[in-house]
Design a protein around this nucleic acid. Structure first.
Lengths: 278, 278
DNA sequence: CGTGATTTTGACGACACTCAAATAAAGTGG
DNA sequence: CCACTTTATTTGAGTGTCGTCAAAATCACG
């Protein structure tokens, strides 16, 4: 066992997971609870995002019939490692950290999810292999597994879209492997910051120069495979070098974008793409 | 840039990729070239594997109509990084290494593929993001992109199966992330050896205690994120400790399975599962 | 059997982890 | 609202794993 795996689990441990099923109010919420308005998604922001934008109106109607809005307060678990998961969640708003506890107590963050990303329980009847924790309040459209599978069965187009999502995620994971195997701490941190400002921008949007950091240093460290101390030192160094500034501890502003690109080894703004959490 | 990224590209550089389209002989080959025999897969070994085993006879027939057998000699490239890829390959036999060259010349191995695994060109019209090199002679059943997409469109079941493959691969990648972020060299090596003996065993098969090592030390190192020297030292140590023996340089026999499991941190024999290369 | 590529072995050094303490922020009760 | 406690982050000093460099040994191939 690696020495740094010992010790207590780091990072925020949320209270016992409890799904909060809010009542929806207003047209948008009605739509996303499964109500059908004018045969379209109406004002639902998800329509502008990944899934709904890609299917025809008829399919969208079917989706709405079986979809259900679910929200999770910050700190709650959407998925629990080891617990059966029989829902598929499309994240509408907020941010989620996916983590995994190893046998020896070490923690590993496998990714961060945001608007448009998916947590899929389609093959975790016997227990999810990781935990999904809400880093902020999170709004989702969700489906029961059977109903979602029904949609997949009835709409081949739908399965293809999901396959594309998954393929994107595989490629993203390969990119992350590159970070983990071939980069030093500062390089990983630079790549992470660029990831934050480039992902989850709307369609056609360009990379931003500021981003929220709702996750803890432990989350970042466990994601990049470095210690919290290294994360802290790295961010401090970036601040000293004028690469970034931090108005608050959970907010970062990129001051020298080219320098971060140079450091990270990334050559251009990565295309924003879907992520399939599970 | 990390210091160890400099220098020439390591590992075998195959001659210019050239697809070898062998003539097929015998029933099995006829089947896998797209011929239809008795409405089933006949003796094709792929049927025992991942895709063909999961679909009905009718779908299987359609598959065969558009499938084509392709073989690649050891050292040839099935995919080339940056080159458009318009085929989907189902690997019937042999082993493939997927690698990626970074801007600074560093090399990263994202995975190894074997029988039942898939190299998918369904979304790489503009260029594959990694290279697939045959480590041994490789036999495949392949499809042109359009025809494969047609299959997906016409058979919702088919897309779901592919989605399951992809989901498995995502989970496998997350497991690999754990290796890369939380394990020391010896632990990574142990996990790699266990991976080799447990994957690509037939359905219902148990883990073996011996495996071929058709890949170079550089391939292993680039996969595990360590140097070739560390790989070599690690294997030597394992031999000295009696954990393994190596009849030849490209062959390994596990002599102390529990010790390797203990080292790797893996708790049980991982379930063999599909891998989607691209 | 000779040449080149791959692997192995050795010595040394650096990056990042460990341990520890200080500081800052967040949460809690009076 | 403020003192107090708890948690998270930052900073510092020391150390070990693993990477770098270099050379020897082994293997592959003609």
């Amino acid at each position: 066992m690696a020495p740094w795996q010992t010790g207590p689990v780091r990072g925020m441990i949320a209270p016992v997971a409890e799904r909060v099923d809010h009542d929806c109010e207003g047209e948008m919420d009605d739509i996303c609870r499964g109500q059908h308005v004018n045969g379209t998604c109406g004002g639902c922001e998800m329509r502008q995002l990944r899934l709904c934008a890609s299917v025809d109106a008829e399919t969208r109607r079917k989706i709405h019939q079986v979809s259900q809005r679910m929200v999770f307060a910050k700190g709650r678990h959407i998925v629990d490692q080891g617990e059966p998961l029989d829902r598929v969640y499309f994240i509408r708003d907020g941010m989620i950290v996916l983590s995994k506890i190893l046998e020896d107590g070490a923690r590993c963050v496998t990714g961060f999810l945001g608007p448009g990303d998916i947590i899929s329980g389609i093959k975790h009847r016997e227990g999810a292999y990781c935990t999904g924790t809400a880093l902020t309040d999170v709004a989702t459209c969700s489906f029961r597994r059977e109903e979602f599978m029904q949609l997949l069965q009835e709409n081949s187009q739908f399965g293809v879209i999901m396959l594309m999502f998954a393929t994107d995620e595989i490629e993203a994971q390969h990119d992350h492997n590159v970070i983990l195997t071939r980069k030093h701490v500062s390089e990983r941190l630079a790549a992470f910051l660029l990831f934050l400002v480039n992902r989850w921008v709307g369609p056609g949007g360009v990379g931003r120069t500021a981003a929220a950091l709702p996750m803890s240093r432990a989350d970042i460290g466990d994601y990049l495979g470095v210690t919290i101390e290294s994360v802290s030192r790295g961010l401090t160094k970036f601040r000293e070098d004028g690469f970034i500034s931090m108005p608050s501890r959970d907010r970062v502003v990129i001051e020298n974008l080219p320098a971060l690109y140079e450091l990270s080894g990334l050559e251009e703004v990565p295309v924003s793409r879907g992520e399939l959490g599970l």
